[in-house]
Amino acid sequence: MSAPINLAAVRVTLGSQNFYIPASQVGRCALVTSIVSEIPRFSRWLGIADEPQEGRHLHLCVPDSGVETGWYLWGQLENVLLSSETIFAVPPLLARHCHLPALRALVGREAFSPLLSWR
């Protein structure tokens, strides 16, 4: 049996929802000091309900996403290591009907969270 492989990732927490992005794809994240109307909300870009205004108001940039302005979000970011034992392929039925951008895998053991990747 081979040893698990770890993936360095950033866990984005929006309210009670978690999303993971490979750390190598996150360009930067900063506290929002002023609002620019051209910068979209991460939740709206994902096509989900807006997150509650909890945690920090952040400006997240992921260059590979093609969203040059990045996104605003209310939440938390945390660097984590994901074991290959907790990363699962998206089931074909879900993959056919899910419109979540950049969904590449699911992370978890009992409850699953999306792993988003643009590579």
Rank of each mutant, 00 (worst) to 15 (best):
Y20G: 05
P40D: 06
L58I: 01
G70S: 05
F19D: 05
V12A: 07
L81F: 09
S84E: 04
S117A: 15
G66K: 06
F19T: 04
R104L: 03
A111M: 13
H57C: 14
H99A: 13
G108H: 01
R96A: 14
V67W: 04
D50S: 11
R56P: 07
H99E: 14
E85Q: 10
L60E: 01
Q17T: 11
S2H: 11
Y20A: 07
W45V: 11
H99N: 15
P114G: 08
C29K: 04
T33M: 12
P63F: 03
F88M: 11
A95L: 07
E85I: 04
G47R: 02
Q17E: 10
P101D: 11
L60S: 03
L77M: 09
V67M: 09
S43V: 03
V26A: 03
W71I: 08
G47Q: 05
L7T: 05
M1A: 12
I35A: 15
L81G: 00
S43E: 14
H59L: 07
S65D: 07
P114F: 03
W45Q: 12
A23K: 05
A30N: 13
G70Q: 03
L106A: 10
V26Y: 03
S34N: 12
N79E: 13
G66L: 04
Y20Q: 06
N6Q: 14
A89E: 15
N18M: 10
V67S: 09
Y72P: 12
R11C: 12
V90F: 01
I21P: 02
R11G: 01
F88L: 13
S43H: 15
L116N: 03
G47S: 05
A95S: 07
V26S: 04
W118C: 09
S83G: 01
E54Y: 14
F112R: 05
G55D: 01
T13W: 00
P114E: 02
W45N: 10
P63L: 05
R119L: 12
V36T: 13
T69L: 14
V90I: 06
S43P: 10
S16H: 12
A89W: 11
E85G: 06
W45T: 12
S37Y: 14
V90L: 00
P91I: 01
S83I: 01
T13P: 06
L94F: 02
D64K: 09
F19A: 06
A49H: 15
E38F: 05
